[in-house]
Write a protein that binds this DNA or RNA. Sequence first.
DNA 1: GTGCATCCTGTAGCCGCTACAGGAGCAACC
DNA 2: GGTTGCTCCTGTAGCGGCTACAGGATGCAC
Lengths: 135, 135
Amino acid sequence: MFAIGEAARRSGVSIETIRYYEREGIIAAPRRSTNGRRVFSEAEISALRFIRRCRDLGFSIRDALALRRLASDPAAGCEKVQDLGQRHLADIRSRIASLRALDEALSELVANCAEGKRDCPMLDRLMSDRDVPAP
Amino acid sequence: MFAIGEAARRSGVSIETIRYYEREGIIAAPRRSTNGRRVFSEAEISALRFIRRCRDLGFSIRDALALRRLASDPAAGCEKVQDLGQRHLADIRSRIASLRALDEALSELVANCAEGKRDCPMLDRLMSDRDVPAP
DNA sequence: GTGCATCCTGTAGCCGCTACAGGAGCAACC
DNA sequence: GGTTGCTCCTGTAGCGGCTACAGGATGCAC
């Protein structure tokens, strides 16, 4: 059995975040020692690690909880996990696409900026009356 | 002179967001008509549009304000704008890189999941005692 | 006068933490 | 017995940038 600091070290979830998870009902409240301090079992530390791994993969807390439910359900098959993963993957890819579009737009603006220029093309674009039409 | 709804339409910033910007001091409070309604000038609408364009490019509000200051300072050269743009570009690229790493990791996990599999490789990985070492 | 659109203020919620303030308990060392 | 230093506790506020109401006033067209 482990104190919160040790649980944090072992799970990779910070102390403050563990308390936050408990407050929000994301993990079950661990039992307390006689002096009122939280005491964590191996299983509870594994649960924290599970959530951290989901978060590291970019899953929301809600998705992490769904995955945990699937993990603990012996009847659940791989498909639902795969489905959740694929949805998330699609989301990541759309975010990459948006960022790439941003990268492209911004690269062009920055490239046209040069030292000592009187008119800044980037500011001109930002201040223009009309939006630039989509390419 | 325009009511807030018209200002929203012309600037591309929603009514609620315009009020939020005013509350937060991001824009100056516009003058009011006799019945207490906000009245926006062309210049104020341009200011809103400027901020929206910055936001569309992914700049923070703080950066947007810095850019506005640079835009209104006749002594300021292009370099500072370029510098801000380049910093932001670096940030975007590092976010892309993180998302790509996520994409790669998640793709592999999802690919190994197949219908009807008894053990789910993704859940196995999430529940493992030890972290997967970096490649 | 009636309906609808538009406007107002104020407040709460989103997500997932993070950062305190202010205090208690416990072990080790002088 | 005192002091230092570490860990723990509760509770609350803040981050960014909105968004979404509730509950009410005003204005305009028919």
